[in-house]
């Protein structure tokens, strides 16, 4: 390679590396802001804002979904398998909402520690399979095949 070309190659490599490092520092500094939601553990530990609106994500605890009235009000518990936070929501739930499903809700904490949600989004996982396979997995948990 001619020296001029080699120089240009190094210049470009240096530029790409420098930008990557700068972006790395920048993203690292804003790490907390880039998180889409807080986990129940963080909420219980007091890391989430106690007055402002934020998002809470976790799994809906099996058997925790209750409808206290005959309106659209629904109560359920969210867990990250370490801590549990109760959520209250009034409105229509997305199709994928069910017990054991991951969800993300937006709202704020009430003084009694219950999270009052204004919006509930279902978080889909990365598994895709036909219903028959899902059924047999439930009977005998094993490999996906």
């Amino acid at each position: 390679m001619k020296p001029v070309r080699k120089q240009r190659l190094y210049l470009i490599l240096a530029m790409v590396v420098a930008i990557a490092v700068a972006a790395g520092f920048g993203l690292n500094a804003f790490n907390q802001n880039l998180m889409f939601f807080f986990a129940p553990t963080e909420v219980v530990a007091g890391k989430a804002p106690d007055t402002a609106v934020f998002r809470l994500g976790g799994m809906v605890v099996e058997g925790s979904v209750q409808r206290p009235g005959d309106d659209l009000r629904v109560r359920f518990d969210l867990t990250d398998f370490e801590q549990v936070v109760s959520v209250e929501y009034t409105g229509i739930l997305p199709d994928l909402f069910r017990e054991g499903q991951g969800i993300v809700s937006r709202g704020r904490l009430r003084a009694d520690g219950v999270f009052v949600a204004e919006e509930v989004l279902a978080k889909h996982d990365e598994n895709y399979m036909p219903p028959e396979v899902a059924d047999s997995l439930k009977k005998a948990p094993g490999d996906l095949e």
Binding site: F36, K123, D125, N127, Y128, M129, P130, L144
Partner: peptide, 24 residues
Amino acid sequence: EWWNTLHQGPTVTKFDKPSIHVSM
């Protein structure tokens, strides 16, 4: 993988076995 996102994680482009049934 780096952050909590609403978008699900990778299904096919990961080092592990793809979490999608062969027929799909």
